[in-house]
Structure formats: C-alpha cells, structure tokens
Nucleic acid binder design. Structure first.
Lengths: 309, 309
DNA sequence: CTGAAAGCGCTTACAG
DNA sequence: CTGAAAGCGCTTACAG
C-alpha cells in the first residue's frame, strides 16, 4: 500500500495497479497527519499580516513566500485586520513558528502564543522580550529631512499613525532628524480605529493644511497615507512638488502609480524576509536568547527620490 | 498531561502546575500531527495565487481569508509566479483542498493534484473536467461597449494578455460585445513571459497607439494594464478621457489611486470567495460531479464608471 | 515480492 | 484525581 502510493521499489506492477485502482475506487486520500507524524513534514511558518490589500503587507508576504520556498518552508498567512487574537490562535494549530505583527498587550502575548517560537516585526518596547526584527528609520529619516531642506523646505509636517502608541517609531526618528537640522518638528498623529489608508491620509492632510497653512512638506507614516496627502493637495490646488513636497514610507508599488511618482523611504522586502528567517532560525536553535541584545536585527529603509519632492 | 496542557477538568491544581513547569523546562511543544491525527484539526484550504503584489490576487486572498475564517477553515497560500508546479506540490502536503489558478497542461493536472479536491479559477477549457469557478465577462463587456459608444467612441482597442491561450476569455467577450454594436473589434494580444503589469500595459498601449493612431478607447485585460495605458497616453499627450477612454478589469485599489480614477469591470471579491467555497464544499461532499454542467458557477463583474471614461 | 508488527505523538475512554 | 491502554493513519524495519 505505502509502496504503491508513493511508488517505491519492491512491489510488482500488477499488485501496484490493483492497489491504485482500489484507492481510486474508495476515493482514498492519505492523511497529512498520519504521514507527518512519522516523516516530520516540512516546517511551516505562520505569517501574521494586518491586511493583504495594503501594499506593504502584500510585498512582505510575497518576499516571505519566496524566501520560505527557497529554504524548504511552507507559509501559512493570517490577516489580523478583523480579529488578531483568533487569527493567531488558528494559525498556531498549524505552524512551527510565527513571524509578523501581533499587536496585543504584553501580558496577552505569552498566553496567546505559548511556547511557539515567534519573531515579531517592529514590536512595541514592552513586547521586545521575544525575538524581533527592528525597522530602523533613523538614517533614512535624516536623509529625508536633509533632502527636504535642500529643496528649501522649512515647515515639514509628519502625518503619523499608530493604534496604541503615543507616537510611532518613524515619527520619533522624524523628530530627531528635523530637530537635528534646527527646525520645528510638526507632527499630526492619527490614532484611528481605521487602517493607515489612502482615505485616512487624505483626511489627515486636509486637517494639517488647516492647522499649518504655511506647511511646505509632508512626511507620511506610509505610502498610502502619502498618496492620500497627494490627493488632498491636488484637491485644494497646492501643487506637488512645487508648493508642497511629499515623502512616504514603504516603497510599495502604489508610489509608482501616482503622478508625480512618490518619493519614499523604501524597504528591501527580500532583505526583510531574510532577516526574519535568520532571526527565527537562530531563535529556534536557541543560539539566540529571547530578548537579549542580539535577539533583534535592524532593517533600514533607503530614501528613494522621485517626482513628489 | 493532556489534562494539564489543554486545561481540562479532572486534575488537581498541584499536579497541573507540576506538569506545566516540567513542560516549560523541557521546551515541550505539542506536535500538530499527533494532535491532528486524533482530533482531525480544522480543515485547511490551499489558495494558489500568481502574485500577491498584483491587486487582483491580494484582494482575492484577503476575501478568501475572511470567508475561510468565518467557516472555520485555515488558509495556506502559495505563489506560482516562480514555479507553479513546486508551489502546488508543497501546498498539497498541508491542505485538504485547493482553490486558485493552476496553469499547467491538462495532462499534468491529475498527476500534480492527485485525488485532492480542487476548484479551479477560470481555467482553460481543457481543464474544466474539475470543479471550477467561471469568470463571466459577457454582460459586463456589453455594458462597457455600450458605455463607450454612448461617449462617441468608435475605435476601441482591447489590450489583451494571455500566457498560453490564443485569446483570453475577456477578449472573446469584448469581441462579442463590440461586434454586437456593429464596430470592428481591435485586439492587441501580448503573450508575454512577463506578468500583466503596469509596465507591460504601458508598452502595449504605446504599440497600439502606433498601430491604430486613430484609436479612441482602450479596454484592458486588467487594471494594471489599464494604468499602464493611462501612463502611455499621458506620456504622449493624449488626454484621458477627452481624447481616449480607458476601461480596466479587476476593481482593485490601484484604479482609485490614479488620476483620473479608472473605469473598470469590478469584481465582488467576497462573492467570488463565497462561490469558490460553496463549489468546493459541494465538490467535496460529492454532491457535485466534477466536470458536469453543474460543476461550475459564474461570477460576473460589474461596470463601474469613473473618471477615465 | 508480500505481509504484518512496531512506533511516530497525541486524545479518548477506561480502570484504579 | 491519577495512571496507563487503545487507537488515530501513516511509514519503517523486519519476517516470511
């Protein structure tokens, strides 16, 4: 039977055919559990994304899928936009390890994830006892600020977004960069119930244009917010980039679709996926103590200058 | 042990604690195979997409994830953009059923998929012995053609794409619709090795503008191609929609990002996911004979008129 | 080449 | 409450 199904040697053609026929007759399908129990199966990674229709997550998922395939891992994806807890809980029944953004209070994480190895993507400080990948915006934000100043921009507004933090990491880096150049950091923070989308960016930019009528640049939490800001500027007749410069964060495809194309702090998603995997493997092997100073690795975006600045 | 881990009744607090401590000590993680073997686990769907960075597939994946979660299924995603065969083969070790686009020759499908239930998304005719979901463009293309004619368009060019077919289904529907209105159907087909992307759309549109200088409308294989056509028109100074109308197919977010916004034949992705699931369940239960006339259900896009026409 | 036992790691059902 | 046997569906290793 095993010999027929998996066509192994040591079986006569006649017997094999007879078994195969019977299998078809009975609609026999081998159980992945029975098989996995003895042959261990290929390792499976659970990828936790917020929303695949957001370019950042789609690019990340695509890169993780590629990287995982090369390493012989399979990937299971869960979206947390509806219910993070149940999405993660379901994943856990199927995977050997997790990677992604799990935005739950610190006390819940242990209970939710249990002993499964996990690599968190850019977590809040209180979750950093686990292995994690840091998105480090310091140098890219400094580049962005210098670039804007070289274009004679002085009133630069950050359109920030965050669900539970007072300020995102990228906004903190923005403040450092702008203050380092002797300018006032202007930050508009949206802690919305909604995702950081184009629509939200448009609303935020409209608000900012009222609050600081003399603003001459937007630096945005991500590319969708930046696209929204672009739309808002175009709607009120503020020319981009002549009158207002706009810079996003992501480097996803949406920035290439708009006119003018979007200047952005662009991630190398493949590098991000590679970093996540090597962190994960080190963490699984135990060569990396959770939470220790070596338990995370930074990934840095690069300033890509296009038409919007 | 089982009682402690899954905190079931019939165990004293002291013993439970002792077991839990030991488990932590030994880094014990229950095997999903052992567990699944006895408790069957939740059913798992393998979703086969081409490329998550394409809005169509991202929207579809998101909708399938939602639908699956509601039905208590888990979803595993594989991307076929690099290697369809190995992507599907890997998936098969992990799932109970498949849904998606598997673009292999008819003779290979049985060998590749074996007895696993599969619902194909809009397959070529020779693959339709399996259960499948039909994307039916007839009525939407008729609406699109009428709409264009009402805008006094007469020289309408379809920018088609297909990897292995002489003509896509949507191009066939386009030809029916345009001929039905007494016009010449102009079709430019790109059977590229590359995906139907913005860049490809731009190239195709440039080519079409040379071949038919008097064209006054584009109907495109998908929204990325349409966005590329829009960019091509803007690059050569053909005004959209005054001079050239553009209509895409998808209804994904990219069409809302461009200026003018894209008229498109828009899918209800949630409906598509629902249809796939009900087809799948019927197919699994055997209430639906593979290939029979009832083995597929049509999903129809709707014409959504926006600025580009 | 063919057959059947042992064992993978769990949960369920039963005995103590 | 605690312990240990039976069995889930496979593959591997061994006997015939």
């Amino acid at each position: 039977m095993t010999r027929a199904i998996n066509d192994m040697p040591g079986i006569s053609a006649a017997t094999k055919q007879r078994v195969l026929d019977a299998a078809r007759e009975l609609q026999y399908r081998p159980s992945r559990f029975g098989r996995g129990l003895v042959s261990r199966g290929t390792p499976t990674l659970g990828l936790v994304v917020v929303d695949l229709t957001n370019g950042f997550w789609a690019e990340l998922a695509s890169a993780v899928l590629d990287e995982a395939t090369e390493r012989g891992w399979t990937v299971l994806i869960a979206e947390t936009s509806h219910d993070a807890r149940s999405a993660v809980a379901t994943l856990l029944d199927h995977v050997d390890a997790l990677f992604g953004l799990v935005d739950v209070p610190e006390t819940e994480l242990d209970e939710l994830v249990g002993p499964t190895p996990i690599v968190l993507l850019d977590p809040k400080p209180d979750l950093r006892r686990r292995a994690w990948v840091r998105l480090d915006f310091e140098s890219a934000m400094a580049d962005a600020a210098s670039h804007l100043v070289s274009k004679a921009r002085r009133r630069i507004v950050m359109l920030d977004w965050s669900r539970s933090q007072p300020r995102s990491e990228r906004a903190t880096s923005f403040v450092h960069a702008v203050e380092g150049l002797g300018l006032d950091p202007l930050v508009l923070r949206h802690t919305a119930t909604s995702e950081p989308s184009i629509d939200l960016g448009r609303l935020a930019a409209e608000e900012a244009l009222v609050q600081w009528p003399d603003l001459d640049a937007f630096v945005c939490f991500n590319d969708p917010i930046a696209v929204g800001a672009l739309k808002a500027c175009q709607a009120v007749g503020r020319s981009v980039p002549a009158d207002v410069s706009i810079i996003g964060v992501d480097g996803s495809a949406v920035g290439l679709v708009v006119t003018p194309e979007l200047t952005t702090l662009s991630f190398d998603f493949r590098e991000l996926a590679r970093t996540a995997f090597s962190t994960l493997l080190a963490s699984v092997e135990g060569s990396l103590a959770d939470g220790g100073p070596a338990a995370h690795r930074p990934v840095r975006p690069q300033l890509v200058v296009r038409g919007s600045s």
